[in-house]
Amino acid sequence: MTLLDVRDLKVAFPGRGWRAKPVEILHGVSLQVGRGECLGLVGESGSGKTTIGRAVLGLVQPSGGEIDFDGQRIDHLPVRARRALSKDIQVVFQDPYTSLNPSMTIGDILAEPLVVEGATGKDARARVRVLLDQVGLPSNAIERLPREFSGGQRQRVAIARALAPKPKLIVCDEPVSALDLSTQERVLDLFIEIQRATGVAYLFVSHDLSVVRHISHRVAVLYRGDLVETGPAAKVTKDPDHAYTKKLLLAAPVADPIAQRARREERHRLAEVATA
């Protein structure tokens, strides 16, 4: 069953200069995320993938199209209704440190959204301990500050904060791109474990096909504001149909230098064909 339904989404930003025309970033993108599903949204920098996530979160105003969430249209909600919706739609950003208040303890960071919703201090504290256990952090983390943790641990805190109100959808905006490869894998496995345990859905934004292959059920590929390919993750990330997706796949590094050289040569060949 569909949880998030984006139809013909367009987003335009003001152009530079007094009489400059607006610059359209998204040209009419349509995609769906089912309940308990992870949709990987992949594309290079400037493709518009992050803009889609921000439009779903209400941080960007669409210039056209519709966004439905759980049967309700949400693209033009008033501020109060949007705040109420934040209980069901949460976000994990790319940089875990800048998204956490450095002057607050981890316990206060995680308890804050619960108290705002009306939970007592005691109930919020109990929920925080459950969340810390859920993301694999020790219980004594509750009294520590964000700077006392590694990048991977801080991202676990950010995931716990997103889980605090028990959302139906989490928008994940490049949540592992700032982490080293071994930490990336552990955090991705954590996302998978949490989804299995809670049934939460993910809109997972990334520029890396290998990352979305690891976590996604389906993959949508964005190129210069247009959706060029979508399908099961195994198909799109291993045997894509569109030339741009093939170039993305060939751009992903591999450990074997011979295979890497073959990928580079094939990528150059595709580029020559495209410009011929």
Rank of each mutant, 00 (worst) to 15 (best):
Q134M: 14
R125S: 13
E193M: 06
G152C: 07
Y223K: 15
D133Q: 14
S210F: 00
H217D: 15
I192F: 11
S139H: 14
A141K: 04
L203T: 07
A164F: 01
T183M: 11
A234W: 12
I192C: 08
C172V: 01
L163S: 02
G152H: 01
G152P: 00
A178Q: 05
L131M: 06
G152M: 03
I194H: 04
P232K: 08
Y202W: 02
V200L: 08
S139K: 15
V176K: 01
S139R: 15
R129Q: 14
D226A: 14
S210L: 11
V128H: 02
R147H: 15
P165T: 05
F149E: 12
K235P: 07
T183L: 12
V157F: 07
S206I: 08
K238W: 13
K238H: 15
A234I: 12
L131W: 00
Q134C: 04
R186I: 05
G225A: 04
A124K: 03
A141D: 00
S139Q: 15
G152T: 04
Q184K: 01
A158Q: 11
A126R: 13
L209N: 04
L132M: 07
A141N: 06
L227A: 05
V211N: 06
V236E: 08
D173L: 00
Q134A: 13
L145S: 09
I142G: 04
G231K: 10
A160V: 00
T183V: 15
R154L: 06
R147K: 11
T183E: 02
D208L: 01
T237L: 08
V157Q: 06
V135E: 06
A220P: 10
P165E: 07
E148R: 08
S177P: 01
V130P: 08
D189A: 13
N140I: 05
D208Q: 11
H207Q: 12
L181Q: 10
T237V: 05
V176D: 03
A220N: 09
P138A: 14
N140K: 09
I142T: 12
R224M: 12
G151K: 11
P138H: 12
P240I: 05
L179M: 00
L209S: 04
F191A: 05
Q134E: 14
L137T: 07
D173M: 02
D173F: 00
E174W: 13
F149H: 09
F149I: 08
Q153S: 06
S182L: 09
D189I: 04
V219I: 13
V128G: 01
D173G: 07
L222V: 10
A141C: 13
A126S: 11
T198M: 05
V211L: 02
T183R: 03
D226G: 11
I192H: 12
V200Q: 06
V236K: 07
L190P: 01
L169F: 08
L181D: 02
R196W: 10
A141Y: 09
A158S: 15
L181C: 05
V219N: 02
V228F: 02
A233P: 00
